[in-house]
Design a protein around this nucleic acid. Structure first.
Lengths: 158, 158
DNA sequence: AGTTTAGTTCTTTTTTTTCCGAACTAAAAA
DNA sequence: TTTTTAGTTCGGAAAAAAAAGAACTAAACT
């Protein structure tokens, strides 16, 4: 029982810690904690109420967070016959897909830079020093993007 | 004069647009706008007051944003003798450095995942299905990270 | 030395985000 | 059919983040 409590505290601690780390990825603290809990919980599928209780959060917050992840495709649930509860769990497949997308998503930045360069060339026709340098940055970013795509392809040829 | 105004409006529009895009990279709207302005302004170096006026913002906001970028190494200023104003401009070298760092910084995520996996293995010794899958995700991420480092090296061998 | 200018820093106000509670819905159980 | 359970939705309070304002500093100019 003492062991049980200690384990619980460990878990709370790591959930809190991971939660904070997840916030870096544009998520709310609550969402971070939910995901963290599903990552460390044993078994990896947990009921709505387990999650709520473990985190000491309100139903609405948990619901909102879970819906966010479900729409995003990173969390799923399964059911067991004769039990009306849903068992929420991380969808590894969806998660990995999301990661790959994010990795590829340097593209956002390239688009942005292209816009800037385009703009700088409208009006005057002779390229200034600064614009030239921006072009070099863009070239590098495009190269990295290319290599990344190739690397992903190489690992996971389908 | 009409042309002048139109150009100005175009610039305001693209600055606003770029500003929003920059927010995705964990910056405040104000910071986004300052950077955007320095990217499209001609010449690419501008005084504090130009920036303030163009953006219609307060001195403190502009100052805070500029200081943020300067500490980060992405914005610099130069001076001209006989003129006490500073001319702020994007430091392309620092900017590119920052980009490379960010690109390399998938590491944060790997660290996080490693922590999770470690935690799941403390306590029970037989690996469950979920933990095994997490390990695969980690392996993939590490591979990507490796390839990225190699690609950067290849492009920029120094 | 005294003034002006360029930018900073600290406090306050405004805006946005996050979270909770309470009322609600839909499906299952009784 | 009524009740219970599992989760959702909506409105508002609390907390956090962003921007503004105003008093301040340091260097440059007189």
């Amino acid at each position: 029982m003492c062991h049980q409590i200690e384990t619980m505290d460990n878990k709370k601690q790591i959930v809190e810690e991971l939660g904070v780390l997840f916030e870096r990825f544009k998520r709310t603290p609550m969402e971070g904690r939910v995901l963290a809990y599903l990552l460390v919980s044993d078994p990896p599928y947990q009921t709505f109420d387990n999650i709520r209780e473990f985190l000491g959060a309100s139903k609405s917050s948990v619901s909102t967070a879970l819906n966010f992840f479900q729409r995003e495709g990173t969390v799923d649930y399964k059911t067991f016959s004769g039990d009306r509860k849903r068992y929420f769990m991380i969808n590894i497949y969806g998660w990995n897909k999301k990661l790959i997308e994010t990795t590829k998503g340097l593209t956002t930045f390239n688009t942005l830079l292209e816009k800037v360069i385009d703009f700088r060339f409208r009006g005057k026709e002779n390229s200034d020093e600064f614009s030239t340098k921006l072009k070099e940055v863009l070239k590098f970013q495009k190269y990295i993007n290319e290599e990344l795509l190739k690397a992903i392809e190489r690992y996971n040829p389908d």
